[in-house]
Write a protein that binds this DNA or RNA. Sequence first.
DNA 1: TTGTTTGTTCAGTACGCACTGAATGAATTG
DNA 2: CAATTCATTCAGTGCGTACTGAACAAACAA
Lengths: 169, 169
Amino acid sequence: MNDVARDFIERMGLMAERDGMFSRIAGRMLGFFMLDGKPHSLDDIAEQLQISKASASTNARFLEQMGVLERCSSFGDRRDFYRLGDSPWEDLFDVARHRMENVLRLVDNTASLLPDEMDIARKRLQVWREFYAFMLDEMDAQAERWRQRLARTSAVEAGSLPAAISERD
Amino acid sequence: MNDVARDFIERMGLMAERDGMFSRIAGRMLGFFMLDGKPHSLDDIAEQLQISKASASTNARFLEQMGVLERCSSFGDRRDFYRLGDSPWEDLFDVARHRMENVLRLVDNTASLLPDEMDIARKRLQVWREFYAFMLDEMDAQAERWRQRLARTSAVEAGSLPAAISERD
DNA sequence: TTGTTTGTTCAGTACGCACTGAATGAATTG
DNA sequence: CAATTCATTCAGTGCGTACTGAACAAACAA
């Protein structure tokens, strides 16, 4: 593997960790698969990223559940292969959206539960509620715009999604 | 302090921590000041949140630097007071924006540094570059829309921003 | 059946980081 | 000057959590 690639992968890991997106190794995996579209087995991933097989398994499954990675298989091969999902951004949107939804729910709930003598606080919370509701709407619209923009240019990278796999390096 | 309020503050702390926004105590502080618009001294904060004064100081200054809190003072009082800034969302936008900017820079940089034999990877990265650039533009537009929407309804909560403070409980 | 090859689970560990208490510094008063 | 009252800094500690190695489970081959 290349020095530039290694550096990229490492930085992706650090950023993912710092930004609270996911663990360092999961971030490295994302970086790895952003560079390489081909499917890789767990052993392969573990070796390339120099991590334990256990970690590879755990984090790959985690990223799969997030929708970032995709598990795929091959005829006559018992191994699991992973590669970048067909719409990883879609799910990155969802993560952010879900977090915001939680805060909205909390603020909303609290505002309604607050005792009468605290309606100054309630009014303050309602502005925040508005803010988070606004953000949610905006994010949905944003995701939709990206989807459309992607559809317009998707011809460029078509034909890159076989259900089964042919070969590996 | 109320049970509902305490629960809200606690949950805000947990969410802030889980979402990687900031530390648990910083999250609790934000929750506290979302409910109470009045300025509070460090000792006051430390007592209400049942944390050490050191932690109160550190986290308050951190939130101030993030633009979420605002330091204010009072005549004849040497103490520092804190309260919610006049536009905390503005700065929450900035945090998210800055993070995204970092990823964009990394992806962009890597794409240009990749050796010639890896231009399949480069093309893959360029789609991601597009994605993050798109997100940045969208976020700016989004922040602007919120600003305008807030300006339309700001009359509701006007008169809540004295430079110095009058009284405390 | 036994022996391989895979993925997963789990106890243990190591590491980072947020929080605390005590010391320090700075400003003010008597 | 000493004493007080505030904020900040810093070494130490505790806690959570991500990672590892080894044991386990499951699927398959011989």
